[in-house]
């Protein structure tokens, strides 16, 4: 069966994306504490999903609308959820990696977590 060169480029993009997803999962297993795990997990899963859907645009050109929408959606929500997650993990005092060099957040965080929204 014959495939055009464009489709093969798309398929290789999907393959590279899946490799990045795999590396992110490997980082999730190997990294020593929550914050490093969030770092590898977010970056790798964002680029992996982005490349997968971008490759599918090459293979299925008539689906471009929904695929582009999914890409925009992933680029917008994934960093936000990892930021909220990191903040919550700091709030419940998850132990940090023992080789952590410095933590300039500690003093200010005490104040920030006590702040409340007043009903206006």
């Amino acid at each position: 069966m014959e495939n055009s060169i464009v489709e093969i480029i798309g398929a290789f993009l999907v393959l590279i994306g899946s490799v990045f997803l795999f590396l992110g999962a490997l980082g999730l297993v190997r990294m020593p504490d929550v914050f490093n795990r969030i770092q590898t997990g977010t970056k790798a899963s964002t680029l992996g999903t982005f490349l997968t859907f971008f490759g599918l645009v090459f293979i299925m050109p008539e689906w471009w609308g929904k695929l582009i929408l999914l890409i925009i959606f992933i680029l917008m929500t994934n960093p936000v959820s990892s930021h909220v997650l990191a903040r919550a993990a700091y709030c419940i005092k998850v132990p940090m990696f023992k080789k952590t060099v410095i933590d300039l957040y500690g003093k200010d965080a005490e104040k920030l977590f006590k702040k409340e929204t007043k009903n206006e």
């Binding site: 590396l23 980082g27 680029l47």
Partner: peptide
């Protein structure tokens, strides 16, 4: 992503984390 891949694939995990 390439940087993260290099860190993850090295057996010694060369990291030096902190909050600034």
């Amino acid at each position: 992503n390439i940087q993260v891949a290099l860190i993850v694939l090295k057996p010694s995990l060369p990291i030096n984390p902190g909050i600034v």
